[in-house]
Every structure is written in C-alpha cells, then in structure tokens.
Write a protein that binds this DNA or RNA. Structure first.
Lengths: 319, 319
DNA sequence: CTCGTGTCCGATCATTTGATCGTATTTTGA
DNA sequence: TCAAAATACGATCAAATGATCGGACACGAG
C-alpha cells in the first residue's frame, strides 16, 4: 500500500510541525497544502500509528506510568506512586506521608462536615503528622482499629488523636484490642453500647485511610503484641501474606478464616465495599500484602511508593 | 530552591497526564487539586524546563529538523528537504522532483492567471515531468535561460515546453545561448524586441523555479557546452563554487565579475530580489553551490535533499 | 450506463486550550 | 511590625483543536 506510505509521510511532517515545531494546525495546513481538518486527521493518524513518542524527563514519569497501570488493572479511583529516593531506596516513608497528607488535606479542607475513619500504623501516623493545622471543628474522625494492645498498653500510632488535635474535630476511638483474647471477649465487646455507637459513626464515614500489614516476623501486628508468636505461626501456615485492619488475607486477597479471624474486633472489610477505602503503604517488603489487598478488590485508592508499585506490577500477572 | 522542585514535580505529573495519559486539563486539574489555569501554568513550565521530549519516529523527522534550521538560518519562506534513500543515497532525484512538483502544483492549480518563470537543468525538467496534466490555458510560462547551446543545439532540458504542453498555457522561450560568444553578441541579443518582450513577461512572474549549478568538471554549464574548458578554468581560478541561471557565485554568494559574466544573457539575479525565487537541487556534490546561493540571499525557497541539507548545516557556520 | 456503496473531504459546531487581567497573598526590607 | 513590592492565583475571553455531519467523488456491481 504505497498510498498509505505517502499518508504516513505527510502525517510525520504534520506531527513534526505540530509537536516539535509548535506551529498551529492552520499554519501546517497551508504549509502542507491541505485543509485544516486534513491536518487534524494526519495528526490523529500519526498518534495512532505510534509515530509520536513523548518522553517526560523526570523521575516522576516512571511513577506515573506505574500509577496508571495499577489504577487501570485494579479499577481504583486513584493511585499515587511516590518516587523512591535513589540514595536510600528503603526510606520512602516521608514521601509517602506527604502524598497521603495531600490526599487527606483535599478532603479535610472543605467546610461541609466530614466523617473520616482511620486505621493504625506508622504510615497513617506519619501521614496525619504531615498535615498542616487547620480549623475544622465540624469534622469527625473515627478509629477503625482498637488501640489497646494485648498487654493493655496503648497503641503508639493512633492517628485519630493527632488529626483531631490539628483540626479541633471530634474523635472516636475503639476501646478494644485489635484481636480479642477469646471469641467470648470479642462478642462482649461488640455488644457494648459505646462500641456499637462508634461502629455506626464509622459506617457513615466518607472515606477510610488505612495501612497495610505484612504477615511475617516483622509484622506490626506481632511486633506490637497484638498477636502472639503462636498465632503468627498459625497465620503463616495458612499462607497469610498481609492484613487489613487486622483481617488476614491470602495471596488472592480473601480473608482467611481461622482462630484469629474469629477474635478480630475491627469492622468487617465487607463494610467498606461502598466506602472509599484507601490504603497507604510502601516498601518492597509490603508488596505482597498490598498486592493481596488489591486482588481482593478491597481498595478504592492506593498511595504507595516506587518499589512496592514495581513489585505489584511484576507479580500482578500471576494467577 | 525546594519550592521549585515541588513545582517541577507537579509539572512532571501534569505533563505526563496530559501528553502520555491524554487527559484533558480539567481532569488533570481535579486530579492534582489545582485550578485549570494552574495546570496550564504547570504544563508551560514543564515545556519551558525541557521536561517534555517529543520524538517523531519516522525518517522524515530528520528532514524536518534540517528544513526548519535552514529556513530560519537563511530567512526562507519555505524549505523542503526530501529524505535520502538509504539504499541509494545518491539517487534522491525522483524524490526531489516529486517535492518540487507538489510546490509547483500548488501554484498552478489555482485558476487566476499565473506567470511562472523556469530555469533549466535536469532537476527542473524532472520536476515538471512529475506534474500531472491539468488544464490551465490562462497561465504563462517563461524560460529564464537561453536554450541554445554554443554549438547551436537546443537544450534538452527545457521545462517550459513540457509545462506548457501539460497545461495548455502560453510559452515564452529565450532565443539565446546562456553565454554569448562575445560582449557585442550579448548586447545585440539584449537589444532584440523579442528578447525585451520576454524579459518584461519574466519580470511580472510571480515565482521562478530554477536549478543550482556546480562549477567543476561535472558542471552542467560545461558538459552541455555552454562554456568552454578554458572558461571553466577561469571560473575555477576565481573560486566560483556554483551558478544560478549561469551567473557564477563565489562561496559567499556574490556574483563573480569576469569575462564570462559580461557575456551571460540570463536575467540579472538582482531582478529576483522581490520575486519568489525557488531553487531546486540536491546531492552532496551540489552542497557548496546551494550554500553559496543561500548565503547570497538570492533564494526565497529551497527544495533539496537530505545529503545536501546536511552539508549546508555542517558548513553553514564558517564565515 | 446507471445505480449503489464506500470512502474521503471540507464546513460547522462544541470542547479544550492558551492568554490576559484584576485581586489576593506572601515575602522582604525598613 | 508594617508597608510595599513581587509573586501567585483564579475569572474571563479569544484562539485553537477535535468531532460530527452532509456532500462529492470514485469504484464496482448489476
């Protein structure tokens, strides 16, 4: 098809004049001797045939590519990928916190009353700490995870406190451990009026920002004494790779039914199906956990870093 | 300037979403949480800072770059550079002819009466031959160069004949050799009524399409017996590098005053200062000649090939 | 030779983009 | 701490772009 080649030549010329030369389509039209819509078609052809390659010369370009891929693959509403520091690739926590804070700020800045629920974890804590102080007494912040460890000590990383302090909003904490000592204990807690009231508020939350937990020796759940070593081993033997709000997930994102699951006091994940559940986690080590959460379809938004994003995209294809 | 870095980050994000992602500025605005003009500014910044690299993946891209450079450097109205065939780099004549024919066709297609003057040479001849037949009896075509060789034979490459045949337009030929036998002979010719009449018509021409001649052993001027070997040597000794319409030029494009110049019967180049003088020539060997013509500022348009264009741009910087 | 069909082309309109201007906000110097 | 300047921001408008539509042309079948 020689005709087609000629068209491509023209298309290349038009594309060059437009993208590199910065001419307007009218100028190109008179220069190539075709009508303006003709130029239009040529440019469309050039793009369609892949003649035009655009490269963004900035570290963030990579992140944008991955962000877009993850967004599309898992049907998220948004996905932010922050760049890994080339110096210290494992220390993207500050970037992550800033990115999360930006998203949060967008929610909080508005003046209509807002109910926001928060998970626990270092990432969430760092995120709310990165937020600027802003007066929003009309907002309400709910903790989704009990902030009492098994030994009775308070969780050091509860973001609701910080957020309420910074905004002057109301705070609602879950007076419970993440994992109750027994099924009966859990039932008792779930029966409490206060607990019920808080759950109701959480149900009305517009968005929930939570962390993603690994399930291994370094798991926060274990390190912070929410579960015992035996329980950790049980989870591992059942192929848990991550957890959301204390609910252990297998590699496909399904909640694992086991002795621990029955004692988890957090709100069931199903509750968030029609809420905006946003996960905030980074680092290659958390990759499997984040991937599981994505596969489960739990998330509407994800804020992560380059190394985790790369892991996700590399391993996403596997069943 | 940390603030600036942050802006650049945003700019990169915006640029990616716009150029790679193909989103509209409104979408980007809501995604980045800034106003639409804000996105506008970010994109401007990204381009200004060179974050956006566009590459056209087509052989013609090179040509466009060079075409643009030549256009700007020598203040032309247009410059077409046709690609060199990678197989036979020295045989771009057909491409050249097609490119020239396209330009010519644009002129000829219109219905208002047009007066067009033509030089001689293989390129011009090939160009008019590449034109499609079109009925334009209202047009007039003038030959700018005598078509009689010193030995009395007719020039084989006169395009006016072909063009007039193809369009049904009027033809005006210069009944003279390019170079007269003596100054007296030239004067006699210039005095002829017919000659004068044709000059008048040529003066009214809207555009003139001419070839560019080399000055060396392979010069058309010499090969076609318009000048003798002794005359060629004289030109060479005076550092002639090219000729337009038989007027020898030095490397800076100035017409060389010598015994031959005084006998050239073609119209003086000065006459074309306010006409659209277009040169049509390609091949690396003609590079010096074309460059001289450009330096002299004689041309308003140039149609050439990749190898000549490369030569021109490589040697253009020298005084 | 005529009719139908498909493709291509250019006019027109809606959308998107770029630029200007007035206002607000921050920053810097006294 | 205040004032002045510089900068940044968002509303508005003009220009450019993309898309749809109707018509013309060419090709092929009947």
């Amino acid at each position: 098809m020689d005709k087609f080649e000629l068209k491509l030549d023209q298309a290349a010329r038009a594309a060059w004049l437009s993208y590199v030369g910065g001419r307007t389509q009218d100028e190109i039209a008179s220069q190539l001797g075709v009508s303006r819509p003709g130029v239009q078609r040529l440019l469309a052809l050039a793009r369609q045939e892949g003649l035009v390659k655009v490269h963004i010369d900035h570290p963030l370009a990579n992140c944008m590519v991955m962000s877009d891929a993850i967004l599309k693959r898992f049907g998220l509403e948004f996905c932010d990928v922050v760049p890994a520091d080339p110096e210290a690739p494992e220390n993207s926590a500050p970037y992550l916190a800033v990115a999360g804070a930006e998203r949060l700020a967008r929610l909080i800045e508005r003046s209509e009353p807002l109910t926001l629920s928060l998970g626990t974890g270092r990432s969430i804590r760092a995120t709310v700490e990165a937020l600027s102080r802003i007066e929003r007494p009309q907002h309400r912040f709910v903790s989704l995870v009990g902030n009492v460890a098994r030994d009775g000590s308070a969780n050091r990383y509860d973001g609701v406190m910080v957020l309420a302090d910074k905004t002057g909003g109301e705070r609602f904490l879950l007076p419970a451990p993440v994992v109750a000592g027994s099924v009966e204990e859990k039932e008792a807690m779930l029966g409490q009026r206060l607990f019920q009231a808080i759950v109701e508020i959480a149900k009305g939350a517009e968005a929930a920002y939570i962390g993603v937990g690994r399930i291994d020796r370094q798991a926060t759940l274990f390190q912070d004494h929410f579960i015992s070593e035996a329980e950790l081993d049980e989870l591992l033997s059942r192929n848990a790779v991550g957890e959301l709000l204390g609910w252990p997930l297998d590699r496909n994102g399904a909640v694992i039914e086991c002795s621990i699951t029955r004692r988890v006091t957090s709100l069931p994940l199903e509750m968030f199906r029609d809420q905006s559940l946003v996960a905030l986690a980074g680092g290659r080590d958390k990759g499997p956990a984040i991937l599981a959460a994505l596969r489960g379809g739990w998330l509407k938004g994800l804020i992560t870093d380059e190394s985790a994003a790369r892991f996700i995209l590399e391993n996403e294809a596997l069943s």
